[in-house]
Amino acid sequence: MADELTLPPGIGPHEGRELELMLAGTKPMAMFSDALHVSDYFPDADFAPHVEAGRIIRVEEIIPRPPFEMRYLFFSLPDEEWRIEEALVMSRNLCAGTVIDHDADSARMGELLGYSSGEVQAFLDHFRS
């Protein structure tokens, strides 16, 4: 999407550096999501050796969201699994349509993913304008 190209560095979906940042210990969690039938970009193969070695935790959940199912794939550092648990609750609420404050949830998800409060605020401001 064109809007994502104008975001400050370090803000936006994926950027292809999650694994690198996680292995360096500077990103506690990565999340990938899409309608199950839409995307084939889920980096299972890239993360697999690190999951097998115990350096990274992997959790996947498929959540019904008519007319499609949503696939959520999370990776975290071993001592950061609590982030996945909280992000899964938020993802389930989103799919169920029970989110009360999208900005608050977006901000919290950004924090869970390891973004600074300034980066989260820039992201929210960008999409509000």
Rank of each mutant, 00 (worst) to 15 (best):
S76C: 05
I56P: 00
I100C: 12
L5P: 07
S116W: 04
A24F: 07
E4I: 04
L5K: 15
A45M: 09
P78N: 07
A104S: 12
D101Q: 07
L36P: 06
A122V: 02
G110C: 08
E81K: 10
E69R: 11
E69W: 06
L5S: 13
A2Q: 12
D105T: 08
V38L: 13
V99S: 08
V38K: 14
W82Y: 15
Y72D: 01
E119W: 07
G110N: 04
M29L: 15
C95R: 03
M22F: 06
E4C: 12
M70E: 07
D105M: 09
F32R: 04
F68R: 11
Q121A: 14
E18R: 05
L112Y: 00
A122E: 00
I100A: 14
I100S: 13
L73H: 04
S33D: 10
C95W: 02
L88S: 07
L113V: 00
L5D: 13
L23N: 06
E85H: 14
K27R: 11
D44L: 11
G10Y: 03
E80T: 07
V51K: 05
I62Y: 09
R65I: 02
V51S: 04
M31D: 02
P78L: 04
D40V: 06
T26S: 14
D34K: 06
D34S: 15
